[in-house]
Amino acid sequence: MRPLGHAALAALAALLALTVACGGRAVRTPPLAVDPPAFRPEALLPTGADAYGVALALSGRIENPNPVALPVAGFTYAFEVMGAPAGGGQVASDLVLPAGGAVPVTVPVRLRWADVPGFLEALATRPAVPVTVSGAARVRAGGGTVAAPYRIDGSVVLPRLPTVTLADAVVRESTLFHTVVELRVSVRNPNPFPLPTGRLSYDLSVSGVPVIQAAKSPLDAVPPQGQATVVVPVRFSTVGAAAGALAGAVRGRADLSMSGRAGYGALEVGVDLRGALAAR
C-alpha cells in the first residue's frame, strides 16, 4: 500500500474529530483538505443533430485520489470551433466518486449552430469543422468545490442547406385593382433530420416591375431527406405600372422573379427564383 499524502492525512484527521473543545465551546474544524480529482476525457462523439444544433457525448473517467468518497455537483463546458469561442453550458450531476477509485462518466453537451462564428459561410465551404470542448467537473469537498479541468479535441459534421425551387406560378384572380398569384415553392431537405416549420421572406417582381417587397410567409416542415411543396398566395395592387406588367400574364405568360431568404432553424439559404407566370 502506498503511503498517504499530506492532503489525505489531513482528511483522515478531520474525519476523526470534526469538532474540538475550546473553553467549554464546540468549535468546528477547518474544511477538509483534498487532492483534486482528475478528469481524463477519452472521446467526443455526436449523438444527434437537428436544424438548431448537434448533441455530443463527452466520455472519459474521473479519478479520485482521496480516501473519502466525493460527490460531483456538475460539469461546465465551453466550445471552440475553428479556434473561436462558440458557446457552452453546464450539466448537473448526482455522480459520487468512490474513495481511492475511478469511475467512467459520459457528459451530454450541445453545440448550437447559432453560436458558431461564420456558420453559414462554413456551410458553403466545409463538410465538417474542428471542435474543442473544455471545462471542469465540479467536485464537492470540505464545504467547498474543487475543479477537475479537462480539454478534448474532435470534429463535427455540418448540416447541408436545403434547396429551394419555384415549381409553379399562376394568376388565380385578376381585377382592375388587385391580383392574386399562387406560388408553389418546392423545398428539398438533404439532411438525415427533419426541418422544422420555417420562414420565407421575399421580394417579387413581374416582368421586371416590383409588385411585392419585404413579404413574409411560413414554410411547412420537411421530412428527413425528403421534399415539400408550399403554396404561397400573394395579393397585390395592379394600379399603375403593375397593370402593364401583368398584361402578358393575363394573355398567357409573363416573367416572374422572387428574391429573398428561406430559413429553417439556424439553416438559412438565399432565394433567387425565376419562372413564368401564367393565367388560368
Rank of each mutant, 00 (worst) to 15 (best):
P46L: 05
G240Q: 04
F79D: 01
R138S: 11
Y77C: 04
T29S: 13
L32P: 11
E42Y: 06
G88C: 07
I212H: 13
P130V: 03
L195F: 01
G88Q: 07
T47I: 10
Y77T: 09
E63Q: 14
G142S: 02
V20H: 14
L12A: 14
V34A: 10
S205A: 15
L183I: 07
Q225V: 12
G248Y: 08
A148S: 15
L45D: 11
P218V: 01
M82L: 12
P194S: 04
A266W: 00
L18Y: 08
T132W: 05
A11M: 11
E182P: 04
G260W: 11
Y77P: 11
I62F: 03
R28A: 11
A122W: 00
P98I: 12
T76W: 04
G154S: 04
G142Q: 04
L4V: 03
A243V: 03
L204T: 09
T132N: 11
A99G: 09
V81C: 00
A114P: 00
L204S: 15
T238A: 12
G24V: 03
T47Q: 09
L56W: 00
L70E: 06
A8Q: 15
Y264Q: 02
G260H: 09
T125Q: 09
A8H: 11
R274H: 15
T76R: 11
G23Y: 09
R199I: 00
P218F: 08
S257N: 13
L161N: 01
H6D: 15
A17I: 00
R151A: 15
R110M: 03
P71V: 06
A276R: 04
E63K: 13
S134V: 06
G208S: 06
A92M: 07
Y202H: 08
A102K: 09
V230D: 14
R28Q: 12
